[in-house]
Computed example of a mutant assay.
Amino acid sequence: MVHVHKPKVEYFDIEARTNTDPKGFVREVEQYRVEPWGLYMARTADHHAFHYLESWLIPTLGLRATIFHYYPEHRRDQNFYVDLGEFTIGPTVWKSVDHYLDLVVRSGRDVELLDLDELLEARTAGLITTEEAHKAIEQAFVAVDGMASHDHRLEPWLESRGIALTWSTEVPAPPRSPATKG
């Protein structure tokens, strides 16, 4: 049985340099960068498994590509985590509405689709429309197919579409892991 929840909504306030997560927590953002095709965000995190995250929101493709900087004991076998959804561009505030589906990218090896069961349960429960569910599935398959045609790599696929991602070269060193504090 899948736990059904409303689509997660997040806000990216460029002017205030904040990111409001789906639970309403407001976090300071170290860096925002706007490109004609997307928005970059980098910030610290107070998560038990990672201390920093970098994301690119790409509205035309309906995706958010994230690099999580994990604590050593929580590292995962992934290069990118991609959320699929709807991204609205405002003059100073961008909004994302998560459409349940996620992709785990292991560059040069594979791309794994996650949470199809959540999407279907959300549709059955009336939390999203048939059109939104269809769009999410279509976005996922465009992304998977695009990356597969580029050796299961996110960045070369995006570059073929005129989108060049750049990431921070100065990610702060991790503080002690919350699990090891004491």
Rank of each mutant, 00 (worst) to 15 (best):
Y11I: 15
E15Y: 13
E15F: 14
A16S: 15
A16I: 07
A16V: 10
R17I: 03
T18H: 00
T18P: 02
T18D: 02
T18R: 04
N19G: 01
N19S: 09
T20D: 10
P22N: 06
K23S: 11
F25E: 07
V26S: 14
V26T: 14
V26H: 08
V26L: 09
V26W: 00
R27P: 02
Q31E: 09
Q31N: 11
V34D: 08
E35H: 09
L39S: 06
L39D: 00
Y40F: 14
Y40D: 04
F50R: 14
H51P: 06
Y52I: 05
L53C: 08
E54C: 06
S55T: 14
L57H: 01
I58K: 04
T60P: 04
A65Q: 05
A65I: 02
I67K: 03
F68H: 11
F68S: 04
Y70E: 00
P72L: 06
R76I: 13
R76Y: 07
F80A: 04
Y81K: 12
L84Q: 00
E86D: 15
T88Q: 11
I89R: 15
I89V: 15
V93M: 05
S96V: 07
V97R: 12
H99C: 09
H99P: 05
H99Y: 13
Y100L: 15
L101I: 12
R106N: 01
G108R: 01
R109N: 08
R109W: 07
D110K: 14
L113E: 00
L119Q: 04
A122P: 08
A122K: 09
T124E: 06
A125D: 03
I128H: 03
T129G: 13
T129W: 11
A133F: 12
A136G: 01
Q139V: 10
A140R: 09
A140F: 06
A140M: 07
